[in-house]
Design a protein around this nucleic acid. Structure first.
Lengths: 322, 322
DNA sequence: TTGAAAGCGCTAACAA
DNA sequence: TTGTTAGCGCTTTCAA
């Protein structure tokens, strides 16, 4: 691939002059500019981003870390981030942690190796000590997306609040027993549980960590046998919701008559399911844009600033499943 | 961030010696090795990949270009590629073309700028002149994934053959009229159509390009009114299939009694749909691994070789929707 | 076994 | 307006 030095030789100017032309400096005579540009075009010149980055200026690389890109929600998030970044001349290095903290840490090292200008991350456990430490060690700005990490720039939907909102809604719709599918430490469960407790419904609430179908069946069955009344199931994400719906069908429990299901993320598929899935919608595009904007601002104008804590509001999208 | 030169200063050795130690050279005395390694650990040294790449050796960066990462199939593909690449010490620069050829070309320029060692791509139109040309201009190896590009390394499922397989299956299941959802030039349609033509069923076959729901409803309605007999719908991907299923439900057409739907890609969601979706399964993980292996081989041992044309076989996964 | 020197392609300071 | 020089952090000769 042709270099500036080579172009300089071909056009009889110095290499820095070529640099000036190619970077749009106005202090170059028109004739030289034309000559250099013509030569660059002719040989299909492409800047060597490594050399530019090495030189100390920005690399125009952003690290993007998600837990699982094969989850439609994160795939959409990554897409929106990539689009927003590209608009600003940045490219994306992508990484999947697969919910494995070791992988997560390894990736932050990769980010450092390539001297990425910043990182957008969905941490595995945003509240953990490790995450905070890794981020501190990184000497580039990091914005946490879709999660709230104490003391770090975070752009997210308040999961605790969303969980409470779902609880309220389910109670209103006269569901009488409650099941959350997901991890205990999930903010959604915390808020869900708390709201139910406040209504004296805590003893009618359970949670189950979805690992395999059989286990979920058993948990659901247990709950059903433990008493009577419509069961409201709050799934930690739409994928769990889809599986819950399937389990209910298998068990021949009518939805939403006897059991209702509400998902989280409001991914595209929910609109087309049978029954159509109620879900909690997060403003993916807006969050992605805000995250990229914040990150680029930190990159462009370094220096201390207040920690950004930017909760977006979630929205209940009610369809047929509740 | 600490550099080799800095470590050299701190440990009283020359910078190249630090390089030797950090690269595991055996020609360094144990004491120096220890001293250097200790210092590197202490200061949390990370190689500057830009400097290394600039120096002429490999960048250990792979470009990955997909049409739409928010499609579950490509998300899974990207995930498998990323995993395989990381196992070999490579990182991924990700790009979405969004089916826009301009974006596609722009990305190949980004790949050149960062001096990526190779590219894995799902081209928009693998048969187009432009794609062939862009790839030729790139001076790094490119492997086309999930599509067959003439004259370029390709790892794919034979769409024409898969389409024919679907046609055969639908005929066997006594569907009598046929609809393909997707682009006319799609290999799947070509094979589907041809197989149907060969059976004298061509005049009972139609295709529709899914743009919006209303249009699909009309097309389906048109086909239904045009005659009688069960309609077999072959959707170009599982997302279209999901929508087709939804449309049929809206129109109160029983599935699979009066109309059947078979998707493509066999994404995770199909297993849980109501009715469970029949679909054509592509071996994503195996294709991703083969593609990465081929690409790394081309990178590690440059030089002319025969074009790789590696079709994987698709598999019919039959569930309730047909 | 170690060090000195050169150079990858670029930007930035300074000089002319 | 243009050129000269230096240097980013590394690998790769070549010499000692």
């Amino acid at each position: 691939m042709i270099t500036m030095t080579e172009i300089a030789r071909l056009t009889n100017v110095s290499q820095p002059t070529v640099s000036r032309v190619l970077n749009g400096s106005q202090t170059v005579s028109p004739e030289i500019r034309e000559r250099v540009l013509a030569c660059a075009r002719e040989h299909d010149y492409q800047l060597n981003a490594l050399a530019k980055g090495l030189q100390g200026s920005k690399t125009h690389l952003l690290g993007v870390l998600v837990t699982d890109i094969s989850n439609g929600f994160f795939a959409s998030l990554a897409k929106e981030i990539e689009t927003a970044a590209r608009k600003n001349g940045y490219s994306i290095i992508l990484f999947n942690s697969d919910y494995n903290p070791r992988s997560e840490q390894e990736y932050l090292d990769v980010v450092r190796r390539y001297r990425a200008d910043g990182v957008l991350a969905v941490p595995i456990r945003e509240t953990s000590q490790e995450w905070q430490e890794y981020v501190k060690k990184l000497d580039v700005p990091v914005v946490t997306v879709t999660r709230q990490a104490q003391g770090l720039d975070s752009i997210y939907v308040d999961h605790v609040q969303a969980g409470a909102m779902v609880a309220e809604y389910l109670v209103e719709r006269s569901f009488q027993r409650f099941l959350f599918i997901g991890k205990e430490y999930d903010g959604k469960y915390v808020g869900f549980r708390r709201a139910l407790d406040e209504r004296g419904l805590g003893d009618r609430t359970a949670n189950v960590i979805y690992q395999e179908d059989g286990q979920f069946y058993r948990a659901l069955q247990g709950l059903l046998q433990a008493g009577r009344g419509r069961v409201g199931i709050f799934a930690g994400n739409d994928i769990y919701a889809l599986r819950a719906l399937d389990a209910l069908r298998t068990m021949e429990i009518p939805v939403p008559a006897q059991a209702g299901v509400i998902g989280f993320d409001n991914t595209d598929l929910g609109r087309y399911l049978n029954p159509r899935l109620s879900s909690v919608s997060q403003p993916i595009a807006r969050m992605a844009q805000a995250a990229v904007a914040r990150l680029l601002d930190c990159i462009d104008r370094p220096g201390p600033r207040e920690v950004l804590n930017s909760p977006f509001s979630a929205e209940l999208v009610i369809r047929e499943s509740t």
